[in-house]
Each structure stands twice: as structure tokens, then as C-alpha cells.
């Protein structure tokens, strides 16, 4: 038995336009936990699915701060505490010279945190998903346009949601999850 966020109804539509219209209709009905699948990027679909709030920007910021200040600390520790060398009479803690490396590490860590956080937030790595149990879902990479109404939507009701989808005249409605 999988969690509600991995269950719901999957409806298949004829083309990109039908998919876009269906998503707008469902949003107008108050559904928020919608997922859409199409074989190619559909213009306007991302906006139609509604605003996405996630914590990736915060993670990127934290990664940048960690990389930057961490590098500054590392440089200071290496050249002041661990192994001080006199270079042309300059101070051990040569802050101006520390900045370029810290800047590069800020960017590197911001990017790494962002990518790792994105993969983690997407639930990866995982080997399977209940969606793949739906017959003909593989058409999403060829000519299938799908909307998945997730069961963890506050407005989700097994019968009502099925009826809502059916009114949009999809090609097929399948159950996701066991």
C-alpha cells in the first residue's frame, strides 16, 4: 500500500491543447496537487499547473554561504594556524588574496547543493513508481498527454474526482497505485 501522494487518477488526453484545457479546468475546480506528463514541453503548461514553492533557493543560498565562509575559514586555518609561511613580508591572513578562491567555492557549493537538493526533493534515487504500473503510461514519451490527480490533494475524493475528470472527456482514466 503506497502513500496517498502516490495514488490517484491518471487521465489521458488527445493532444497538448486538451491537456492544457484540462489542467486549467481542474485548477479552476480547486485542485492543487496536479501533475502533467507530455512527450514534449507544452508552452503555458508550467504556469497552468500553478506556482511551485519549494526550498531549493534557500538550499542554494545555504550552499553558497557554506562554500564561501568554509573556504575563507580553511584558508585562514591553513595559512595562520596550521602552516604559516612568510611570503614577501605579507601578513599570514592575507584576506584580499583569500577572496577569489572563496568566491569560486561559493558558486561551486551553491550549484552542488542546488542539484543534490533537487534530486533529493524529487524523491531520487528510486527504482520504481506506481505510475509505471498504469498500462500504456509509457506513451507519455511518445504521443500520450496525461494529467495525474494526486490523492493527497485536499479536494480529492475517489468518486467526485473521477467524475470531474470524466467530464473533461479524456481518452482513458486509470487508477494509480494499488
Amino acid at each position: 500500500m503506497s502513500a496517498p501522494r502516490e495514488q490517484g487518477w491518471l487521465a489521458r488526453f488527445d493532444d497538448a491543447n486538451a491537456l492544457l484545457l484540462a489542467v486549467r479546468e481542474l485548477r479552476a475546480l480547486g485542485y492543487t496537487q496536479l501533475e502533467a506528463y507530455a512527450p514534449y514541453p507544452v508552452e503555458g503548461l508550467a504556469e497552468a499547473l500553478g506556482p511551485v514553492r519549494n526550498r531549493i533557493p534557500l538550499l542554494v543560498l545555504l550552499g553558497g554561504l557554506f562554500g564561501g565562509f568554509g573556504t575563507l575559514w580553511l584558508e585562514w586555518y591553513a595559512s595562520v594556524v596550521d602552516y604559516p609561511i612568510d611570503v614577501g613580508g605579507r601578513p599570514d591572513a592575507s584576506w584580499p588574496a583569500f577572496v577569489p578562491a572563496a568566491l569560486e567555492m561559493t558558486i561551486l557549493f551553491a550549484a552542488l547543493f542546488g542539484i543534490a537538493g533537487m534530486l533529493f526533493a524529487n524523491g531520487l534515487p528510486r527504482l520504481n513508481h506506481p505510475l509505471f504500473g498504469v498500462p500504456r503510461f509509457d506513451a507519455a514519451s511518445r504521443d500520450g498527454f496525461f494529467v495525474w490527480l494526486r490523492a493527497d490533494d485536499p479536494r480529492f475524493d475517489v468518486h467526485q474526482s473521477h467524475a470531474d475528470l470524466a467530464r473533461l472527456a479524456p481518452l482513458a482514466i486509470d487508477e494509480v497505485g494499488p
Binding site: G88, R90, P96, A97, V99, P100
Partner: peptide
């Protein structure tokens, strides 16, 4: 601006 300062600071 910083690069100018940095190179001047290092070369002295």
C-alpha cells in the same frame, strides 16, 4: 574594482 585592488595589494 576588487581585482584592481587585489593585484595592487599583491604586487605592492
Amino acid at each position: 574594482a576588487f581585482m584592481d585592488y587585489l593585484t595592487v595589494w599583491i604586487a605592492d
